[in-house]
Computed example of a mutant assay.
Amino acid sequence: MLLSSRAAFGLGACALALGAPSLARAADVNIYSSRQPALIQPLLDAFTRETGLSTATIFIERGLEERIKAEGANSPADVVLTVDIGRLDAAKQADVLQPLEDAAIEADIPAAYRDAGREWSGVTARARVLYASKERVADEAITYESLADPKWKGRICIRSGQHQYNVALVAAYLAHHGEEETRTWLTGLRDNLASAPEGGDRDQARNVAAGQCDIAVGNTYYVGLMRNNEKEPEQKEWAEAIKVILPTFETGGTHVNISGMGLARHAPNRDNAVRFMEFLATDEAQRIYAEVNYEYPLKPGVALSETVASFGELKADALPLSDIASHRARASELIDEVGFDGGPKS
């Protein structure tokens, strides 16, 4: 029996109870995803309408690559959907993906957002930006480097330095500036914090709204989620209190990361999986995925959502994501070496 894509919400628990092989018989394309089901469901529905192929998903927030590796050759996984270059690289290093040379994907997704070994590709992008108080921060250009300037002492909020989003940002800084400059910058940024890092990106917007800090580091898509959150009106108030500033590196652009995809190493439905991955790079899928998640389409020419367009023109850093991946381990070490998560020291 085939399940429609709308059956994806309950499938994770079912697969865990029945065993992984049952999932392989459940649908035409089996997706292991670290994204919440609601964030990808419109995409799955559109794919099924266009192709007639059904989809099933397992939501695995942590340990996705370990799960696939443990299942081995019997894994029902066809496609891996996840966020952040760190998770994509972890899947590659765990040897749970296979190379895919595909002309359609390579034509639609720029090379800077694809693995040189063809084991993963970006789908959409998000920028690591600043949430600035509308009342206390003037309209001004800010660089990532300037966040260590003493003028911001006691005025910055951020989540844990060891969160994957911040590790990627520090890795990008490391790729641009080298180890010693990165260590100095991390120390200065640490001492400019209003308090020790905690919470998530939305919590940082709340802190700015409450006057605990004047600027915070966060991802663009959280602003869209807060602005349009009808269930939790207080988050709309946090979003109303901030403006988005798109910082840049002094020798580059704004740091971006991705949501991405990869073809599972033992995909039992390989042809269908490739068809799904090709669909994710089309104009329709790029538009749907970007609008639902308030992210940036990676395919050139696809229009931004109204919310994302309001952030201003994004001039993305040209640093290849593979370079960021290669610097993540050392970036994480430097974050610990300066005691970043302990908060200000002076």
Rank of each mutant, 00 (worst) to 15 (best):
Met1Val: 12
Ala7Ile: 07
Phe9Leu: 03
Phe9Met: 02
Phe9Trp: 08
Leu11Val: 10
Ala13Asn: 10
Ala20Ser: 14
Ala24Met: 03
Ala26Thr: 14
Ile31His: 01
Ala38Glu: 11
Ile40Val: 11
Ile40Asp: 00
Ala56Arg: 11
Glu66Ala: 11
Asp78Pro: 01
Val80His: 01
Val80Trp: 02
Val80Asn: 03
Leu81Pro: 00
Gly86Trp: 08
Asp89Asn: 14
Lys92Gln: 12
Asp95Cys: 13
Ile105Tyr: 02
Ile109Gln: 04
Arg114Gln: 10
Asp115Arg: 03
Ala125Lys: 02
Arg136Gly: 06
Ala141Thr: 13
Arg159Trp: 04
Ser160Glu: 15
Tyr165Ser: 10
Val167Ile: 11
Ala171His: 02
Ala171Ile: 02
Glu179Lys: 13
Thr184Asn: 11
Ala194Met: 11
Glu198Asn: 12
Asp203Glu: 14
Val208Glu: 01
Leu225Ile: 08
Met226Leu: 07
Glu230His: 07
Glu232Leu: 05
Pro233Gly: 06
Gln235Arg: 15
Lys243Met: 11
Thr248Asp: 04
Glu250Arg: 05
Thr251Lys: 12
Thr251Val: 05
Asn257Thr: 13
Gly260Ile: 01
Arg265Phe: 08
His266Lys: 09
Val274Tyr: 08
Val274Asn: 06
Ala281Thr: 10
Tyr289Thr: 03
Tyr289Phe: 15
Ala290Lys: 02
Ala290Asn: 03
Leu298Pro: 00
Ile324Pro: 00
Ile324His: 10
Ile335Ala: 01
Asp336Thr: 06
Asp336His: 09
Asp341Val: 08
Gly342Met: 04
Lys345Thr: 14
